[in-house]
Design a protein around this nucleic acid. Structure first.
Lengths: 335, 335
DNA sequence: AAATACTATTGGAACGATCTAAATCATAAA
DNA sequence: TTTATGATTTAGATCGTTCCAATAGTATTT
């Protein structure tokens, strides 16, 4: 059996209450007593039983991390950022990978509530209803929505996807492109909507037609497949493609290559996210950097703040994206 | 305040003990009583307080997941597999990303012990001493080491990297290659050692010299940099390169492309892991599939078994790798 | 009718910490 | 010597559950 405060108390010749005070670094306890208790703890190999303490205190110092797809490198970065911030504060996260399944997500959330997490970091699965977030808020469980916003009752951390799309489009327009396509947008999630709306809005402002929009999954496979649709008819094919994310953009470049076209020369390609593999690709991918790691850190910190002071209206942190120009966008090809 | 079993008991007109029996689906309780308790729970919005129950029972139904680098897509797959298996069993995992830092790792493990995890799934950071695992084992905390083995006192799940290397090398030899290099091996971890040793062993068996071995980090950057060393002198350059992992292999292909060489034509490249991006690359990467997801699942299941019955000698599960032939290996280029 | 067996239910003590309020102790002041 | 003061220490209740042993209640057997 592992030693408890009682065992330490007996061994050190004090009461359990005193041991507890030592554990909590209370100034009330005399230096000599503290030292004695410390040596007892060392010699018995005491391990603090946080779960037992949690029962008495109101906090578990634990949060739930619910992620829509951990194998997506962008969300892996997000998770790493969260892990960093929580580590600094001495907190731990339960993790759950919903794989974009709202059912799985609900199951995970229920399980985490049973474990009495103090709050939840949620990158919602596609198709998550606002009710999921509202229900948690109603029950006094702080939630921070990350990237995808499904409810208005909880905090939100994200990037300004509209601005990101504007940066990307303006860059292409400045290079002389006039037929600009958008690939992605199949997802029924706020960042996809934001991008699509911004895309529809920015082109007319420059007197350009809103190029074709192809719905596809934001994966390499989806991007590669979209190329087939866009470039079937050479005469109407776009000269530039903005993609929902880098994964998708890498797919588009792959699709172009398979058609014998060179990305950056025969068609410009821009992505979103700035995942590492974009930089280590040829041609290197021009992209809108979203800063997943930073969003994760900010999200974790916001959640901890919210747990400490649950009052006040929901907060939003919207980080500005940055255009990273690399090789995948050349000037409009002369026809 | 959230309702407790006592509140439910009062509301349903039974004792707390009976509510507990209902919660645990005990056959002891009469159908009518059970129904009454159920409706009380529904109407009061009861949420099971597992942490409190844990204190009484000896299990927390919680494991620690300590991963050396979650942003590496291979380990992300591993994590997804673990998550799947735990979900099926109704368990939850605390997650920690050590980012290859043994210090961070020790801190995380200590924190998880305070939370009284029932076991730990460990993909050890580079430089982890056997003592870390032994200490846990001595204290009766089940550990499953994943991929990297640092101690003999705990279970281990991995792939047969020696066999993997043999498959890769034989494939290249069969294609006619005679100057075969190995890129990777900088890591002081068992899978790297296994690969290196197998590499050294297999070539002499075919009467071939053990080609150059370049130590580098198993990243795109590392692979790309290694190309510079290997292909500086054209006359002695290898015709085939086996890489520590796919990330590294993608880097090597990038480096080759930057030298104007075409992977698969001017030099063959093989990776390890079979991460998704290898398939969606041109040329598509030939690789030794390790099955990270499956290793994760097996590891989680093994840990749960071990938690249920802690007795018995440490177990090892070594899964066979599979060669996935794609485009990055052609026959030996005629000079 | 009494004894037996079985089914449902329950009070109260755990689990391992913290918290409150009160007790103890030394020291200085009256 | 007594009292006041401040510094330490502690007994005992508490958090929300499960477990044990005991208690009713009901049906079956003798």
């Amino acid at each position: 059996m592992r030693p408890t405060v009682k065992d330490i108390a007996r061994h050190a010749g004090v009461s359990a209450a005193t041991v507890s005070l030592v554990l909590r670094n209370s100034p009330l306890v005399a230096a000599a007593t503290r030292a004695g208790v410390q040596t007892s703890m060392d010699s018995l190999g005491y391990v603090y039983h946080r779960a037992a303490a949690n029962l008495r205190m109101r906090l578990t110092h634990t949060v739930g991390l619910v992620i829509c797809e951990i194998t997506n490198p962008f969300y892996a970065e997000l998770a790493a950022g969260i892990d960093d911030a929580l580590d600094q504060a001495g907190w731990v996260a339960f993790v759950a990978n919903t794989a974009e399944s709202p059912t799985r997500q609900s199951r995970f959330i229920a399980r985490m509530r049973e474990h009495r997490v103090d709050g939840i970091l949620l990158a919602p699965a596609e198709g998550t209803s606002a009710e999921v977030v509202d229900e948690l808020s109603r029950n006094g469980i702080p939630v921070v929505q990350m990237l995808r916003r499904v409810g208005r009752s909880a905090d939100y951390v994200s990037a300004d996807f509209r601005l990101g799309m504007t940066l990307a489009a303006e860059h292409l327009i400045r290079l002389g492109h006039q037929r600009i396509a958008f690939v992605g947008g199949a997802r029924r999630v706020s960042p996809a909507r934001d991008r699509t709306e911004a895309f529809r809005a920015i082109l007319p402002r420059f007197g350009l037609p809103v190029g074709p929009i192809v719905n596809c999954l934001p994966t390499r496979e989806g991007g590669a497949a979209a190329v087939g649709q866009l470039f079937r008819d050479k005469s109407s094919a776009p000269t530039a493609v903005v993609c929902h994310n880098d994964l998708c953009a890498l797919g588009v470049m792959l699709g172009l290559a398979d058609l014998g076209l060179v990305p950056g020369r025969d068609a410009a390609v821009v992505g979103f996210d700035n995942i590492p593999e974009g930089a280590m690709h040829r041609p290197a991918l021009t992209t809108v950097a979203i800063g997943g790691r930073q969003i994760g850190e900010e999200g974790a910190r916001l959640l901890l703040r919210r747990i400490k002071s649950p009052e006040g209206p929901p907060e939003s942190i919207i980080l500005p994206p940055k255009l990273v120009v690399r090789e995948s966008c050349g000037p409009r090809p002369s026809i």
